Amino acid sequence: MASITGFGGAFLRAKDPDALYQWYERHLGLIRSEGGFAFPAPTQHPQIVFAFFREEEEYFPPAQKAMINLQVDDLDGVLDRLIAAGVTVDPKRDRYDFGIFGWVIDPEGNRIELWQPMG
Results as ranks from 00 to 15, higher is better:
Phe50Gln: 13
Tyr24Val: 10
Glu58Gly: 02
Gly77Val: 05
Gly29Val: 05
Ala14Tyr: 12
Phe53Tyr: 09
Gly9Asn: 10
Glu57Asn: 15
Val89Leu: 01
Ala19Lys: 10
Asp97Gln: 07
Asp16Pro: 13
Leu70Val: 12
Ile48Glu: 07
Asp73Tyr: 00
Tyr24Thr: 12
Asp76Gly: 05
Ile68Glu: 03
Ile48Trp: 00
Met1His: 11
Asp76Glu: 08
His45Asn: 12
Asp97Ile: 06
Glu25Pro: 03
Pro42Leu: 05
Phe7Trp: 04
Arg54Ile: 00
Phe52His: 07
Tyr24Gly: 04
Pro62Ile: 04
Asp18Pro: 00
Arg13Ala: 15
Gly6Arg: 09
Ala51Phe: 10
Gln47Gly: 09
Gln44Val: 14
Gly99Asn: 11
Leu79Pro: 02
Gln22Cys: 04
Gly99Met: 06
Asn69Gly: 10
Gly8Glu: 09
Phe11Leu: 14
His27Asn: 12
Leu28Arg: 12
Ile31Pro: 01
Phe60Pro: 00
Gly109Ala: 07
Arg93Asp: 02
Val104Ile: 13
Tyr21Leu: 06
Lys92Trp: 03
Asp73Ser: 11
Glu55Trp: 01
Gln22Gly: 03
Gln64Leu: 06
Leu70Phe: 15
Ile112Asp: 04
Gly9Thr: 05
Phe11Ser: 13
Ile48Tyr: 07
Phe53Cys: 05
Phe101Gln: 08
Asn110Leu: 06
Arg95Gln: 13
Gln64Tyr: 09
Val49Pro: 04
Leu28Trp: 03
Asn110Asp: 05
Trp23Arg: 07
Trp103Tyr: 15
Gly29Ser: 12
Val72Ala: 05
Lys92Met: 04
Glu34Met: 10
Leu79Lys: 14
